[in-house]
């Protein structure tokens, strides 16, 4: 006998679960909004107002002489990595059905992001002009 479902698209919301997904959703909106300014401004400075053909050691050294640009670059690094990591977390969740592989992919993602966050932060904080 065929049972007829009439509740399509009206799944019960989980009761008593954590609010992590809601917070992640909210974070994507807030960080995305900030990144529209940070990332697009960064792209325009590097690729439109200047030309990457002129990009050299001196350019970066002069930029990082002001703490303002170090702070700008670090905020861009942190937000884009977090925004990208959460985006990929959802992409992995949606596209990998196998639970073990999903867990492995998530672990690899978090590990990679953490390492690159440390490398990037170290470069911005520890840079000292050599010439």
């Amino acid at each position: 006998m065929q049972t007829t479902r009439t509740d399509w698209g009206r799944r019960q919301p989980p009761i008593g679960g954590s609010s992590f997904e809601l917070q992640a959703w909210f974070f994507m909106r807030v960080s995305g909004l900030v990144l529209v300014f940070l990332a697009v401004w960064h792209m325009f400075i590097m690729h439109v107002f200047n030309d990457t053909l002129n990009l050299d050691y001196e350019f970066v050294a002069a930029r990082w002489e002001t703490p303002y640009w170090r702070a700008f670059d670090w905020l861009l690094l942190a937000l884009s990595l977090l925004h990208g990591t959460n985006g990929l977390r959802v992409v992995i969740h949606d596209n990998i059905a196998d639970k073990t592989i999903k867990k492995l992919a998530h672990s690899a993602l978090y590990g990679t992001s953490l390492i690159f966050f440390i490398i990037g932060t170290y470069a911005i904080v520890a840079f000292v002009r050599q010439v």
């Binding site: 050299d56 050691y57 970066v60 990929l88 990679t112 490398i119 170290y122 840079f127």
Partner: peptide, 28 residues
Amino acid sequence: RVTGVGLFGYLLLHIISTALILLGPEIY
């Protein structure tokens, strides 16, 4: 989704190439 994944990949490449500045002007 496609641009998001692509931009994340480029971001990793970009972090490495920028961090090379710690090794001096020649390498960078």
